Computed example of a mutant assay.
Amino acid sequence: MLVWERPEPPDRPTPGALSRDRIVRAAILLADADGLDAVSLRKVAAALEVGPMRLYGYIATKDELLDLMSDAVYAEIQPAGEGWRAALTSLAETTRDAAHRHEWFADLLGGRPRLGPHALAQGEAVVSRMSGIHVDDVMPMVGAVNAYVAGAVRQEITERRAERTSGLDKRQWQAAFGPYLQRLFASGRFPAMSAVVHDAAHLDADRSFRLGLDLLLDGIAARLAR
C-alpha cells in the first residue's frame, strides 16, 4: 500500500506527538537549511526529539519521505487564469517560485512520482483550465512545460549554488574568466559564439526564463493553429 493510503499508527502523547505532516514539515526545514543531504529519518527524528524507530510507523523509507516532501511543495503551486496559455504560464511561474523557496525541490523535479494528493490537485487545476484542447494534446503540452521548467530551474539553482561555493558574484566571475574567453574569441575559432556573447542582449534570470517560456508557448500556439 502506498504511503498516501496507509493509515497512520495511533499516536502516543509522550515523549512527543507525531504525525506524517509533522515529520514532513521537520524534514522540509532541514532541507531548506542544508539541502537533501541533511535529510534522513535519523536526522528528522533528532530534530523532533524522538527515537528513529518511532518514525517507521509513519514512513517506511527515505524515498517515501521524499515523496511526501515533494507533495507538500506541490501544495504551494497553484495555477491560475483561464485558458491553456494562462494556465501553463501560471504553472511554470509558480513551480519556479516554489523551487526558489525550496532549492532541494529542483533536485526532485521530474524524478519523483506525482501521485500525492497535492500533486494530483495541482494537475487537476491545470487540466481543468485547458478546455477546448483535444484530449490527446493536453498532457504533451503540460509535459513540455514541466520539462522546460525543470531544466531552467535546475540551471538557475546550480548557478546559485556555484556562486555560493566559489564566493564569486557575477561581476567577480566575469573578471576571473573574462580574459580567457576574450583570448579564445580573438583566435577566430568560435565566431558564432563570439557574436552571441558580444552582441546579444544579456537578460537577467527572470527575463530569460519568461522569454524561453514564451518561445515554447508560441510554438504550442502555432501547432494548435495548424
Rank of each mutant, 00 (worst) to 15 (best):
G132C: 10
W84R: 15
G81A: 08
V50E: 11
A106E: 02
G81I: 08
L68W: 02
M141C: 07
Y74N: 03
R54F: 04
A99D: 05
M69T: 02
R85T: 12
T89Q: 13
P52S: 14
R112G: 01
G111H: 07
E82D: 14
L109G: 01
D136G: 11
V138I: 15
I77H: 01
G116L: 04
R101Y: 01
L65P: 02
F105H: 05
Y56M: 11
T89M: 06
V126S: 08
W84S: 05
H102Y: 08
L108W: 04
G123A: 07
G110M: 07
E49P: 03
E49T: 15
L66D: 04
W104L: 03
P113L: 10
A75V: 01
L66G: 01
Q78K: 12
D67N: 08
L91V: 03
K62A: 07
G83W: 08
G57F: 05
E124M: 12
D137P: 00
L55A: 13
L65W: 04
M53T: 15
R129M: 08
S131D: 13
T94A: 09
L88S: 06
V135C: 04
G81T: 10
A92N: 08
D136N: 08
L120M: 15
S128D: 12
S70D: 06
A72T: 07
P140G: 10
V50Y: 08
Q122G: 05
M69Y: 03
A98C: 02
M53G: 15
L108P: 00
G123N: 14
I133T: 11
A75W: 00
E103Y: 00
P79N: 06
E49H: 13
H100E: 08
R54W: 06
E76C: 03
P113I: 07
P113H: 13
G81V: 07
R114G: 11
A80L: 03
D137H: 12
G57I: 05
R54Q: 14
F105I: 00
M69Q: 04
Y56P: 09
E103K: 00
M139T: 12
W84P: 03
A98K: 08
K62C: 03
S128Y: 07
Y58A: 04
I77W: 01
Y74R: 01
E93Q: 09
R112D: 01
E82M: 12
V126F: 07
I133P: 03
E64N: 04
A121E: 06
V135M: 13
I59D: 01
R129Y: 08
E124F: 10
L88H: 08
E124V: 12
Q78L: 10
D136S: 14
G57N: 09
L91N: 04
E64G: 07
A60C: 06
L65I: 06
A87W: 03
E49G: 09
R114K: 14
G132Q: 09
R112S: 04
D136P: 02
P117D: 13
P140L: 12
Y58H: 13
S90R: 07
E103W: 00
H118W: 01
T61R: 10
H100Q: 08
A92R: 05
P79C: 05
K62T: 11
E76R: 06
E64R: 04
W104C: 00
L88F: 13
A92D: 06
H134L: 11
D107I: 00
G51V: 13
A125R: 09
R85H: 10
G57T: 07
L109K: 02
R101M: 02
T94K: 10
S128L: 10
M69V: 03
G83E: 12
V127G: 03
M53R: 15
R129W: 05
